[in-house]
């Protein structure tokens, strides 16, 4: 069985032929496209290490069948930075020590990028303590066994506020 699959990955058209309909988006990215930034921690949608954006929304790549996503646009951690210039969320994770071992980090970062977009689209702010609670809840689909949650939350809040301020200046 060979199944053609067209994806746009990090803005680039990637055509591939799957030998098998069982391939998940995560395994297509990691094993077929050699984009190993997205991690497999549980393969069951229980840890969030595989989080990527599909058509702009964060999902668990391990629970999505690649064939079903034919034509979709996928953003992974590899596509965030602009050359050597880190995406603000990436920079914030370093500045706030939002990781230790780094294994869950690509998923955390993609989840954070997705969360910030969701909050922006919903007109939600990150101005006060309640919003920090909102970030904590919004990042709860990403387990971190090292226990770097405090830094993760700080990083996401800082990146979201910076983006909001930049948006205000631009407006």
């Amino acid at each position: 069985m060979s199944i053609p699959l067209r994806l746009t990955v990090n803005g680039e058209r990637r055509d591939l032929v799957l030998e098998d309909p069982r391939v998940t988006l995560l395994d297509a990215l990691r094993e077929r496209l050699h984009l190993t930034g997205s991690k497999k921690g549980c393969d069951r949608g229980q840890c969030g290490a595989c989080t990527v954006l599909v058509d702009g929304r964060r999902i668990n790549a391990c629970l999505a069948l690649a064939v079903s996503l034919d034509g979709a646009s996928v953003e992974t951690v590899e596509g965030l930075a602009n050359g050597d210039a880190l995406h603000p969320v990436q920079a914030a994770f370093i500045a706030h020590d939002g990781f230790q071992c780094g294994f869950c980090t690509p998923g955390q970062i993609m989840s954070a990028v997705g969360l910030i977009r969701e909050m922006r689209e919903a007109g939600e702010s990150v101005g006060d303590a309640a919003d920090v609670e909102r970030v904590r809840e919004g990042m709860s689909g990403n387990l971190c066994r090292c226990g770097a949650y405090a830094g993760i939350t700080e990083a996401v809040v800082a990146a979201a506020r910076a983006e909001a301020q930049a948006g205000e200046k631009a407006a």
Binding site: I59, A64, G114, L115
Partner: peptide
């Protein structure tokens, strides 16, 4: 329910 990622899907 679940997580934001799962709710998105």
């Amino acid at each position: 329910g679940a997580s934001a990622q799962l709710r998105n899907a």
